[in-house]
Amino acid sequence: MTDKRHSILFWSGFAIVMALLFVSPYVLPPFWQRFLTEVLIWGLLAMSSDLLIGYTGMVSFGHSAFFGLGMYGAAAALLMFTPSLVLALAFGLIGAAVVSAFVAYFSTRLRDIYFAITTLIFSQIFYVIIFTWTDVTGGENGLNFPRPRLGIPGIWSEPFTATTLHWFVLVVVAGSYLILRRITQSPFGMVLQSIRENEPRTRAIGYPVERYKIMAVMLSGLFAGLAGVLYALQNRFAAPDFVFFLISGEAVIFNVMGGIGTLVGPILGAGTFLLLRELLGRIFGENFPYLIPLGFIFIAIIIFMPQGLLGFARRWLNR
């Protein structure tokens, strides 16, 4: 009985949040509408790394590589062919998948801080390649490209507006959330969580732990790449700054702020972080070093509130 009530409550909560996010373009001024779209995109990046941090117990400092390759993959598709949404998505995801397969194969042999450092170094390798390969990637200046039309090939298409872009992002992020939630509740996700709780025992039971970890990193990389494609669609440029490891660090900050192991927590964390940044910028002026107070808040959360903002609801959200 409680299970049924839980699922009614969960889905009605989900529906309310979705409805609010759906109508928000009609209510919000253009700036905040754009801001909300951006929060959703960063939230997707943070959510993808939550699959590793919160469910598998591996902190990745290399998500900027997946995000950036999604971005540059989309850029390649939009610059080489006639701009098409499907091709941009496909190229971005393929780029992220190839990179994450490569990173996953090597880095999952290591645990804890060694995993964190290895993923960080891998993302820096891609950063250096993108930064120095000026002929193809545009180097420091990055790439500018047109936005494709929204639509299904051969059936229907129309140009993106800010509102339809918001809806498109919302649909992709919500879909990703449901898929990730399903993954974490599946037998596969249970094995990941048992790796987090006790790796030697999971191995002893007979699960091929390395293979599960590689799968987890690759899945996580795919969703991070998806976030990269969305960001490329929204901003119509790709720049090496987004491959730099500070972006991975921000994804980890979003996770810790919002609450790891909740999937929606990271989105809330991203929202809180970006909102605080925006407010600090408005109150103290554009040049205010907003990362100083945010850094202090982040450290305080680690010390005093390691569960994050949504940590109290963790069990409820994962049922």
């Binding site: 902190v59 804890d112 801080i113 964190a116 660090g249 980890v252 900050i253 810790v256 040049n287 070093p289 907003y290 990362l291 100083i292 945010l294 850094g295 202090f296 982040f298 450290i299 680690i302 010390i303 390691p306």
Partner: peptide
């Protein structure tokens, strides 16, 4: 305050510190 917790938390905390110090220097 982080002694005895998972060593990964210290990576996160010192990452926060590096952001603070770097932006302090820029400012």
């Amino acid at each position: 305050p982080l002694v005895g917790r998972d060593p990964l938390t210290t990576i996160l905390a010192t990452f926060g510190l590096s952001l603070i110090l770097q932006n302090y220097a820029l400012w």
